[in-house]
Nucleic acid binder design. Structure first.
Lengths: 211, 211
DNA sequence: ACAATTAATGACCAACCGGTCATTAATTTA
DNA sequence: TAAATTAATGACCGGTTGGTCATTAATTGT
C-alpha cells in the first residue's frame, strides 16, 4: 500500500523510552492528559503507536513515568539543599525557590501542576499518585522550614499547614497562569519579577520583628 | 418501541433554560468542559438531549450562558461596593473578598476558575470570552483599589499589575485546590481560616508603616 | 371536538481514540 | 548465508459523543 521501505525503520531500543517521554511531556503539557492522543505522542517521537505500547503498558504508565523521571529527582535535590542549609530560614526559602525555578519553573515540567489540577477529578488514580509522590513531599519540606523559622523566632507564629498553602499558592499560580489563560492576556509578566514581589511581601509578612 | 406515554412528557418552556443551566454548572464543574456529555446535562435537567439543543445553540453557547447568568452579576455587585466604599483601602479589600466568598466562593460557581484554567488551552474561544468578561474586570477592580491605597500612603509602593496577580493567587488557589486535588489530601482545611491567614500576611506585607 | 402549533423525544450519523495483534523487517547468531 | 530473534508497524475493534432530524404528543385556539 505504501512505497516499500520508504520509512527508515530503525531499531533503537535504548533511545526510544527517553524520546517517548520527551514527546509525552510536550503534548501532555500542551493539551492535557485526556486530550493527548497516544498516536500523536508516538508520531512526535518518530515511531508508530504500536511501538509506544512496546515500551509503556498504557497511557497511565506513560504519564507516571514522566513524573518519576522529571519531577522526583528535583524533589530529592531540594530535600538535600534543606538538609545541608545553614543560615536564616528565609534564605533557605530563597534557595529552594531558586533551585525549583531552575529545574522546574523555567522548563517544560512547569506545565505539570496545571495538568494535575485540570485532570485530578477525572483521573483519581493519577491524582493519588501525584499527591503521594510529589505534593506531600513538597509540603513536608516547606513545613519543616517554617517550623524551623518559628522555633528560632525568625518568623511569627502561624498555623503551619495553612501557611504552607498560602505561601505556595502564588508560586503555583504563576505556572498555572502561564500554561492556561496567559495567552489571552495583553502583556506577559516577568516571572522573576513576580516571584521577587511575592518574596518581598512574604519577608515582611512573615517577620516577627517589624523591621 | 417504548411503552406509550409512560414518560411524563410535560411542556415547560419557561423553566427549561434555568434548569438546564443549573445542571450544566453542576456537571461542568464536576467533570470539566470537554468531559461533560450534553446528554448527561439534559438528563440531570430532566429532559432529552434534543430538548437541550432547542434552548442552546451548542455546547459553547451553553457554557457562556452559565458564566453570563452566574458570574457577571456578582462582578457588577463588587464594582458597586468599591464605588460606594469609604474608609481604609484594606477594609475595602476585606469587603470585596467577603462578598466574593458569599456569592462565588462558597457556591457551585467556585468551580469555574479551575475549569477555565483546565480547558483554556484546548478551547481558546472560551478562554478569550472568560478573560474579557471576567478576568479583566476583576483585575481592574483590584488594581483601582491598590492604586487608591498607595496614593494615600496606606500601602507601600509596588508594581500594581504584578501585585494584583500575587494577591489574587492564594484566593484562586483555594478554589482550584478544593475542586481538584483536595480529595486526595488527608485533611480538609477550613477556607475561612485560610483566607484569614492570607489577609493577615497581606495586611502586614502591604503596610507602609511597620505597625 | 378538531385542527394547528410547537415542545419534546431518541434513533441515528460521523468522527474520534485507547488499546490489540498479526505481519513485516532490521539485527544478531551460528 | 541462513535461521532465529525481536523491534517496529498500522489496520482494526469497541466504545464514546457532539450534533441532527423525522416523529410524537401536549397544549392552544376556534
Amino acid at each position: 500500500m505504501n512505497p516499500p521501505s520508504l520509512s527508515p525503520r530503525k531499531r533503537r531500543k535504548e533511545a526510544r523510552p527517553g524520546e517517548l517521554l520527551a514527546a509525552a511531556l510536550d503534548l501532555f503539557v500542551a493539551r492535557g492528559y485526556a486530550a493527548t492522543r497516544l498516536e500523536d505522542v508516538a508520531q512526535q517521537a518518530g515511531v508508530s503507536k504500536g511501538t509506544l505500547y512496546l515500551y509503556f503498558e498504557n497511557k497511565e504508565a506513560l504519564f507516571k513515568a514522566v513524573i518519576r523521571e522529571g519531577i522526583l529527582p528535583v524533589l530529592a535535590e531540594n530535600e538535600e539543599i534543606a538538609a545541608r542549609h545553614e543560615g536564616s530560614t528565609f534564605a533557605l526559602l530563597e534557595k529552594l525557590l531558586n533551585n525549583w525555578w531552575l529545574r522546574i519553573g523555567r522548563t517544560a515540567y512547569a506545565g505539570i501542576p496545571k495538568l494535575m489540577v485540570a485532570e485530578a477529578n477525572n483521573f483519581p488514580e493519577l491524582a493519588q499518585f501525584y499527591y503521594e509522590q510529589v505534593i506531600s513531599r513538597c509540603r513536608a519540606l516547606l513545613g519543616a522550614a517554617l517550623r524551623r523559622g518559628m522555633a528560632d523566632g525568625e518568623f511569627r507564629p502561624l498555623d503551619i499547614e495553612v501557611a504552607i498553602d498560602v505561601i505556595i499558592a502564588p508560586i503555583l499560580m504563576l505556572l498555572i497562569w502561564r500554561h492556561s489563560l496567559a495567552s489571552c492576556a495583553p502583556r506577559e509578566h516577568d516571572p522573576q519579577h513576580y516571584l521577587q514581589l511575592h518574596m518581598d511581601l512574604l519577608r515582611q509578612g512573615l517577620s516577627r520583628s517589624q523591621v
